[in-house]
């Protein structure tokens, strides 16, 4: 059993090594196991010869950060209501939360494109951010519900009894308790947004250029090595911005290991 687990860990991680080798293998003819010529040529092509790359990286990151904020602003109150309140239609809302996971994105996006054209949101950053948020919401609500369940609402009730107002309670009692969970939900929403392709392509209408928009034509054109460089950039951008985010949050809130989520 233990061996099976380690084999699986190898299968999970070895492809990333393949990806790394792909980006530097300039000449890798068929039966050779390793590339015969290695160079930074593909990186040169992506970063120097294509002036869209850096803009796309910035757009991808800004978009993912906006999506994460929009998602959290909707998910946190919703998760709070679903965990600590009883209200009419709660079971129905719980099913609603699942729908964006279950109903295929393409079906929702095709329908939405027309509404978005009408609202003037097609081809805009905001329109793309809204559609990405829709698909991140179920995951964020799920995480935040677990968090609110683990934290409970006794301290909040205590603060309310002592006369604190809702804004004060949220800032001084709720927020410090849920910060690690917020970070987890932020990370997941960010990751979902930065990996989107077809929603960005359809709602962005070719005007919102993210890394995935630049990447996909290279796969279709058979230039998988250049696509690999974009992939490394995509993963690198995500890892870098998320660790920066975590670093910033940790400077303001010292928290121990995440015990839920």
């Amino acid at each position: 059993m233990k061996a099976l687990f380690y084999v699986w860990v190898f299968i999970s991680c070895a492809p990333l090594l393949v990806l790394a080798v792909m980006t530097v293998s300039t000449f890798w003819p068929y039966p050779a196991l390793l590339p015969e010529i290695m160079s930074w040529e593909y990186y040169y092509h992506v970063f120097v010869q294509n002036d869209q790359t850096l803009n796309a990286a910035v757009t991808s990151i800004l978009l993912a950060v906006s999506v994460a904020f929009i998602t959290l602003m909707i998910a946190v109150p919703a998760a709070k209501a679903l965990t600590h309140h009883n209200f009419f239609g709660k079971d129905f809302v719980k099913i609603l939360v699942l729908l964006p996971i279950i109903v295929p994105g393409i079906a929702v996006t095709i329908g939405n494109q027309i509404s978005m054209i009408r609202l003037g949101l097609t081809g805009t950053f905001g329109g793309v951010a809204i559609i990405h948020s829709l698909f991140a919401l179920p995951f964020a609500i799920r995480i935040m519900s677990n968090v609110f369940e683990a934290v409970g609402n006794r301290l909040e009730l205590q603060a309310a009894v002592l006369g604190a107002g809702p804004a004060f309670i949220f800032r001084r009692v709720t927020l410090p308790q849920i910060i690690p969970g917020l970070l987890a939900a932020f990370t997941l929403s960010f990751t979902i947004s930065i990996a989107q392709y077809v929603t960005t392509f359809m709602i962005g209408g070719g005007r919102v250029i993210t890394l995935t928009i630049l990447l996909v034509p290279h796969i279709q054109g058979g230039q998988t090595h250049i696509a690999a460089v974009y992939s490394v950039l995509l993963i690198g951008a995500a890892v870098l911005s998320l660790s920066m985010m975590e670093h910033i949050v940790r400077r303001y809130y010292n928290f121990e290991n995440v015990f839920y989520a």
């Binding site: 602003m73 209501a81 609603l96 964006p100 929702v108 095709i110 329908g111 829709l134």
Partner: peptide, 27 residues
């Protein structure tokens, strides 16, 4: 309170999710 808390989510679901599907049904 719970209705206010759940309102942003319901707006998102009705305008973007249900709105998109409804558009597809009509067309």
């Amino acid at each position: 309170t719970p209705y206010i808390l759940i309102l942003p989510f319901l707006c998102m679901m009705s305008f973007v999710f249900a709105g998109g599907l409804l558009q597809a049904v009509v067309q």
